[in-house]
C-alpha cells in the first residue's frame, strides 16, 4: 500500500473533492507540478487547466479553475472557483458557455466585468481541453 495524502478541493459551491490520493499534478503559474506525500510545505497559485489525481492506482482527471494551493506533508488543500471531473464535463454546455462569454466580450464593459468574463472563458476552455484529451 502506497502512502497517501489527503486531497481537498473546495469551491464556493461546496467541497468538490475530498479523498486520499497517492499523487496529484497541479497546473500552476510556473507550469505543471507533481505532488507526492511528504512534499515540503508549499503555497502556490493554480491556473485554469487539468489536474490529475491518482487514487488506488487509478488516474482521474479534473478540470480546475484559478485558485490557491496549500501543500503540507499530509494534505493538499485547493481553493478554486471550479472543479469538474473529466467524466462529468458536459462538452456542449462548456462550449456554449464559452461562446456566450465571447459574445459578451464584444459589448462595452468595465474592466472588472472583462476580468470576470475572461476568467469564465478560461474555465470553459479548461473543461473542453480536459474533455478532448480524455474521451470517456
Amino acid at each position: 500500500m502506497a502512502s497517501t495524502m489527503r486531497l481537498e478541493i473546495v469551491t464556493p459551491e461546496g467541497t468538490a473533492f475530498s479523498a486520499d490520493v497517492e499523487l496529484v499534478t497541479i497546473p500552476t503559474i510556473d507550469g505543471q507540478i507533481g505532488v507526492l506525500p511528504h512534499h515540503v510545505d508549499l503555497m502556490t497559485c493554480m491556473i485554469p487547466g487539468e489536474m490529475l489525481m491518482r487514487r488506488g492506482g487509478h488516474d482521474q482527471f479534473i478540470a480546475v479553475g484559478a485558485g490557491l494551493v496549500e501543500v503540507t506533508g499530509t494534505q493538499v488543500s485547493i481553493a478554486t472557483d471550479m472543479a469538474v471531473a473529466a467524466a462529468n464535463i458536459d462538452e456542449a454546455k462548456a462550449e456554449e458557455a464559452r461562446q456566450r462569454a465571447t459574445m459578451r466580450l464584444r459589448e462595452k464593459l468595465s474592466s472588472e466585468e472583462i476580468a470576470s468574463i475572461n476568467a469564465s472563458i478560461a474555465r470553459s476552455l479548461a473543461q473542453l481541453r480536459v474533455k478532448k484529451r480524455h474521451r470517456v
Binding site: I29, I33, D41, L42, M43, T44, T72
Partner: peptide, 25 residues
C-alpha cells in the same frame, strides 16, 4: 504548521494573488 514554507513562484506573487482576492471572496 512548519514556519518554513516554499512559495512558488515567489512569496510576493502568491500573497498578491491571494490577498487581492480575499476581500472579494
Amino acid at each position: 504548521l512548519n514556519a518554513y514554507c516554499l512559495f512558488e513562484p515567489s512569496r510576493e506573487v502568491v500573497l498578491d494573488f491571494f490577498l487581492s482576492r480575499y476581500p472579494k471572496l
